[in-house]
């Protein structure tokens, strides 16, 4: 199996370069993350990448795999694959990108429940949380694959992007939340979304992001 990996250490390299590896892995069901681990532990490649849970639960490992955003731990490894850092994010080193500005923008959304002051007591608050969409939206693992795949985000930074729209929708749908989330979404560029659906295609959780945005 041949793998091409994006390498870049801004402190040492003048510009990014690609390193090719030939690995002898014949295992059934091998994932991209497994190949990266192999390169580092067996070949001492010293590639920087993020990972934690290995099972699509933590959202740490999203990268570009053959120019498409995906979770390294769930995407099957293929011959001649090209691994690059997630698009639309600044590179820290190799496959690791900075989430800083995304996080800051998120914080601006005041992403917490704008609840009243009355505390639930004893029997737990009878909230009508059975809306399925609301529940599903909370399952986002914040991998930012959708941000890496959004063409509008790529050219127009005024648009907050699908992950953040998902976050706003999560609060909009929460009956306990009192903030005007719709106004917030508009402010963050809701109408810039072309509903092309690219974000939905790459979401490992299978959210129908573009449809929920319109909601």
């Amino acid at each position: 199996m041949r793998v091409k990996v994006f390498r870049y250490d801004p402190l040492r390299d003048k510009k990014p370069w690609y390193q090719e590896f030939k690995v002898d892995i014949k295992e059934r069901g091998m994932k991209v993350l497994g190949v990266l681990d192999y390169l580092n532990t067996e070949l001492g490649a010293g590639i920087a990448y993020r990972s934690s849970c290995r099972s699509g639960q933590c959202g740490s490992c999203a990268i570009m795999i053959n120019n498409r955003p995906g979770l390294a731990c769930r995407t099957p490894a293929r011959d001649r694959m090209v691994l690059e850092p997630l698009k639309n994010f600044p590179v820290i080193r190799d496959l690791v990108v900075s989430h800083k500005s995304t996080r800051e923008r998120m914080a601006r959304l005041r992403p917490f429940l704008h609840r009243g002051t009355q505390r639930f007591t004893g029997e737990i608050e009878p909230i009508s949380l059975r809306k399925t969409k609301f529940k599903e939206l909370k399952d986002c693992i914040e991998c930012y694959s959708c941000l890496g795949g959004c063409p509008v985000k790529e050219s127009d930074d005024n648009y907050a992007g699908p992950t953040l729209m998902r976050l706003i929708a999560r609060f909009e749908l929460d009956p306990r939340d009192g903030a005007d989330r719709l106004a917030m979404a508009v402010e963050e560029g809701l109408y810039k979304c072309t509903t092309c659906g690219k974000c939905t295609v790459v979401c490992p959780e299978g959210f129908r992001i573009h449809e929920d945005v319109i909601e």
């Binding site: 917490f112 609840r115 639930f120 737990i124 929460d174």
Partner: peptide, 14 residues
């Protein structure tokens, strides 16, 4: 739940 979590409910509010 006060922070924003929503655990599964039975048909009732419990």
């Amino acid at each position: 739940e006060w922070y924003g979590a929503a655990f599964d409910r039975l048909k009732t509010t419990l």
